[in-house]
Computed example of a mutant assay.
Amino acid sequence: MLEIRDLSVSFKDKTVLRSVNLTIEEGSVIGLLGKNGAGKTTLFESLFQNQKYSGEILWHKEKLQRKSISYLETENYFYPYITGKEYLEYFSQHKENSLNELTEKFRLPLNKFVQDYSSGMKKKIALMGMLMLDKPINILDEPFNGVDFEGVHILYEIIRELKDKNKIVVISSHIIETLFHTCDKIAILEDGIISNIFDRSDFDQLSNFKF
C-alpha cells in the first residue's frame, strides 16, 4: 500500500500542496485530474523523492524510496546523438525478453537518433525504458500527449498489464476519456488538496468538472 499523509509543498510565499492525503492499493490504477498549476507535477516530483516536502509518503509502512518508483515525465530528456537502441541498452541488462516484447509492440526505428523522433515516438521510447525498470509504483505524467491512435491503445494495454501484475499506476491526463478507459479511481486535485475521489461507477459525475 502507498500512503500519502499530510503532504505539503511550498515555494517561497506560495503553497502548492497543502495536507494532501491519499491511499493507493497495490494492483490499482488511479487518475489525477486538475487544472494547470494545480500541483499535479509537484505531487509526482514529491513521490519520486525529487522535491522537498513536509508530511509522509509511505510504501509498506516505511518511507518511500526512489528505487521503488518509475516515472514517465511529461517531457523527457535524451542525450544528443543517441540512438533508440543505445538508449534502451541502459535499461536492458538481464531483460532481453522484455526488450524484445516492447520492441515488437512499439516498432520504433531504434537505429535512428532519438533527437530525430517525433514527440510521440520520444514518448514511446521513454515509456519502454520506464517499463523495463519493472518497479512496483509507476507514475505517468500526461502519457497520452502527442501519442497517435495506435500508441494510445498500446498504452491502454500496458496499463492493464501493470495492473494485472499487481503494480500501482498513477496517471495524469487532460484527456479525461483516457482516464475513464484506464482508471479504477480518479482523484481531483484543486486548491492544493485532494478535494474528491471518484470510483469507476461514479465517473459520469466528472462531466460537471471543467479542467
Rank of each mutant, 00 (worst) to 15 (best):
I168P: 02
E3W: 01
L99E: 03
G192N: 05
L64T: 08
Y156K: 13
R200G: 06
E104M: 09
L99C: 04
D184Q: 06
L102W: 00
I158T: 07
R160M: 10
T103E: 10
T42W: 02
K14N: 13
I197W: 03
K163P: 03
I125Y: 00
L189E: 05
D202K: 15
I197H: 05
D199T: 13
A187Q: 06
Q205Y: 12
D6I: 13
E45A: 11
P136R: 04
K123L: 01
Y90N: 11
E73W: 01
D141F: 04
Q65R: 11
Q51I: 07
L140C: 03
K61L: 11
V114F: 00
I194Q: 06
I186D: 00
R200I: 13
N138V: 15
V170F: 07
L32I: 15
F78R: 00
R18I: 10
N100P: 06
M132Q: 05
V147S: 02
S28K: 15
T178V: 12
T15W: 02
K95W: 05
I4N: 00
E96P: 05
D134I: 04
A187N: 02
R18W: 08
I193E: 13
L17R: 00
D134T: 08
L43F: 12
K165L: 12
K124H: 07
Y71F: 15
L127M: 09
N21S: 13
S92H: 04
K135Q: 12
G31W: 00
L162F: 09
N145W: 03
F211D: 09
F203R: 08
L7D: 03
G34A: 10
S201D: 13
M132A: 07
L179H: 02
V20Q: 02
D204P: 06
N111M: 08
H181R: 12
K35A: 15
L72G: 05
H153S: 11
L47K: 04
D134E: 13
E89S: 14
N145A: 13
K112D: 11
I175D: 10
L88A: 07
M128T: 06
V170T: 03
E86K: 14
S54F: 08
N36L: 08
E73R: 12
F180M: 10
D116M: 14
I158L: 15
R107T: 14
P143H: 04
L7T: 07
K124F: 04
R18M: 11
G39F: 02
L99Y: 09
I193R: 14
E190N: 14
I82M: 11
